[in-house]
């Protein structure tokens, strides 16, 4: 039982981590909460739905790749339209966050106004396909999502640590002005950043869609991945991974816990938001975040 809970938690946690990494990547360089990332994740899922179900009948892997690409490109355009002006003007990070909120609201409601509020299922790749280890029944899809998320995050880590662009992104997370003065074209760097974050988000969206359903508010501002990123400490990559997985585990634990006659699962969301508020109050930098003090 507990083993099964952990496996489920790890699987959903790794998808959260995949999304949380996108929030943290952007936050690390541009220092704001990119709420539009949730909308990009959602659009990634809808692209997969269009490719696999409604318009074309593509098979899974090409659809996954195209969804990632599509989500990456959407993220890139969101940056161009909603953030680049503010960036060039060196507006306070709050402005970027408000702009991101505007994008999130607009994109989600464009989906409501066009595709509608219906829930759509993505074809079950091997959801039904389960196997047992001891008492636990484990779906192949959970394992698959976990493995794929881990591979994606590992690839991202390699890019960040061993390529020129990756080094520049890490440098920019400390001092983007200095990076620019060393000759790095910040616009290009930020474009790469959003392509990376967007395509990881697209992948997460597809997995979410398969595991649950595809619907307009699946990536809404207050989604769990964002909370995971805050738990880990916004702007920290390991933080996002640990935070995402931790939240996944906690959630699946809470879902199966019954105290007296109260199923905690009813209050699962209150629980996540409660954690978010408490964490911000008592440790706003999360588990791995760094503290920046204002200079007088």
């Amino acid at each position: 039982m507990i083993f099964q809970t952990i496996i489920t938690g790890l699987s959903i946690g790794s998808i959260y981590a995949l999304m949380a990494v996108g929030y943290s990547l952007v936050f690390s360089v541009l220092n704001f909460s990119n709420f539009a990332h949730g909308a990009v994740i959602t659009l990634g899922a809808y692209i997969a739905w269009a490719l696999m179900v409604s318009v074309f009948k593509m098979s899974f892997f090409p659809a996954l790749l195209l969804s990632m690409l599509g989500a990456g490109i959407i993220a890139f355009f969101v940056e161009r339209i909603a953030y680049s002006t503010l960036r060039h003007r060196r507006a306070p990070s709050l402005f970027l966050m408000i702009s991101a909120m505007g994008v999130a609201i607009a994109l989600q409601n464009v989906l409501y106004a066009t595709v509608g509020a219906n829930l759509y299922a993505l074809p079950p790749i091997f959801t039904q396909d389960t196997f047992s280890i001891g008492a636990a029944t484990i779906s192949r899809m959970d394992i698959f999502a976990f493995v794929f998320s881990v591979i994606a995050i590992a690839l991202l880590t390699i890019v960040l640590n061993y390529t020129k662009v990756g080094t520049a992104i890490r440098a920019a997370s400390y001092d983007s002005e200095m990076v620019s003065v060393l000759g790095v074209n910040l616009d290009v760097l930020v474009a790469v950043l959003f392509l990376l974050a967007g395509s990881l988000g697209g992948m997460a969206g597809v997995f979410m869609g398969i595991k649950y359903m595809v619907y307009p508010s699946m990536g809404w501002i207050t989604n769990k991945a964002y909370i995971g990123a805050v738990i880990g400490g916004l702007g920290s990559l390991p933080g996002a991974i640990v935070g995402g997985i931790l939240l996944g585990l906690l959630e699946s634990l809470v879902s199966v816990t019954v105290i007296g006659s109260v199923h905690l699962s009813t209050f699962r969301d209150v629980f996540s938001f409660g954690i978010l508020v408490l964490l911000l109050v008592f440790r706003p930098t999360g588990l791995f975040g760094r503290h920046v003090e204002e200079k007088l």
Binding site: K164, T167, A168, R170, A171, V179, L182, G183, V184
Partner: peptide
Amino acid sequence: ENLMMGAYL
């Protein structure tokens, strides 16, 4: 890495 950032271009 700091030095290589100087040679970015």
